[in-house]
């Protein structure tokens, strides 16, 4: 592929630096009070820190897993990178090009759009019910690449072949396809414009295990063949362990640990990662020996205290220092980073 946009540069494919997204919360009421109140100076509206100064990289051809509990900011982070949402601050560099400055609203028409594509959790919901499988796969090509009709049809068939979707199903509508077939359409559509980065948000969550296996194996094979990088969001830690080279662990908007998947799973350092891994359901009682249950209550993501560790209050380790000084992500071993004073 010798397109001018994707000149191979040294360094990581994706370089995220101090990326933040804060949502203003408090509702219309607060907003109204703000503009109509002449009497007293108003306090700034509360801010929900969904993604809080996050930095990480993804190398070419690398699969990075993103894990953490619901509400920790995974989808927001993914939407920032995919340029569906504008960051509050920070940088998103794709092979050296800064994408954070482009407005999300106009990004659909941006020439860089093709370089990052997404596979959604529920393939069924994300497909237009009035599009056939062929239309769905052709759609991003039509919008982002100029391609004559005959060539387009051939390309769609080639994509069906690559993703194991029988060609005779191309004329079907989503409701005429099984879950696994819809997942294949979702993947074919995402790789149609030859992205360098594929973001997968729980791509197999809605599938039966027997179908999940086939889709995961397909993703692994496509990655080998096409050399894409993956950012893979999943609650299924066993799947992350099997598919990912590296893993990022998020807690309340912050990355609290990152490193090679095998190392993180074998020897988690951050107390939250430890709790997470010990909560993976185990059929074998012997594997459940050191179960860790988190007590306490999660801290609020709204105007969090910048001097308190986000995990403080639920952390089994928690000391006074944790309530006075926010731990920063620091190296722990050659390829790992942890944000805990004691790890």
């Amino acid at each position: 592929m010798s397109e001018p946009l994707s000149v191979s540069t040294p360094g990581p494919l994706l370089d995220i630096a101090e990326l933040a997204k804060r949502f203003t919360v408090g509702g219309k009421q607060g907003l109204l009070a703000r503009v109509t109140s002449f009497r007293k100076p108003v306090a700034p509206l509360p801010q929900l820190h969904a993604v809080d100064e996050v930095s990480f990289t993804i190398a070419r051809g690398e699969t990075v897993g993103l894990v953490g509990e619901s509400g920790c900011g995974k989808s927001t982070l993914v939407r920032l990178i995919n340029r569906l949402l504008d960051p509050t601050s920070g940088s998103i560099r794709l092979a050296g090009t800064e994408l954070a400055d482009f407005k999300a609203r106009a990004f659909a028409a941006n020439p860089h759009r093709a370089r990052i594509q997404m596979v959604f959790q529920d393939a069924g919901d994300s497909l237009n019910p009035r599009y056939t499988a062929a239309d769905a796969i052709a759609d991003p090509i039509r919008r982002l690449k100029k391609m004559p009709g005959a060539k387009l049809a051939a390309r769609v068939e080639a994509l069906a072949d690559m993703t194991g979707l029988p060609r005779e199903l191309l004329s079907r509508f989503p409701h005429q396809l099984s879950g696994g077939q819809k997942a294949r359409v979702g993947i074919a559509r995402a790789i149609a414009v030859e992205p360098e980065l594929l973001i997968l948000d729980e791509p197999t969550a809605a599938l039966d295990v027997s179908v999940q296996v086939v889709i995961l194996q397909l993703l692994q094979q496509l990655k080998r063949e096409l050399g894409m990088s993956y950012l893979f969001v999943s609650h299924d830690l066993n799947v992350v362990r099997l598919l990912c080279d590296r893993v990022l662990v998020m807690y309340l908007g912050k990355i609290v640990e990152q490193g090679p998947a095998a190392e993180v799973f074998a020897d988690p350092r951050h107390p939250y990662t430890k709790a997470l891994i010990s909560a993976i359901p185990q059929a074998d009682p012997a594997q459940r020996a050191d179960r860790l249950r988190l007590g306490g209550e999660p801290r609020s993501p709204i105007d969090p205290d910048p001097t308190v560790c986000r995990f403080y209050g639920r952390c089994p380790k928690g000391t006074p220092r944790c309530a006075e000084e926010m731990p920063l992500l620091h190296p722990a071993g050659s390829a790992r980073q942890v944000a805990c004073h004691f790890a």
Partner: peptide
């Protein structure tokens, strides 16, 4: 056999 549990690789899993 299709459930990703203690398996070491994706290839070790088999669909039904």
């Amino acid at each position: 056999a299709a459930t990703p549990g203690e398996t070491v690789s994706l290839d070790a899993l088999a669909s039904i």
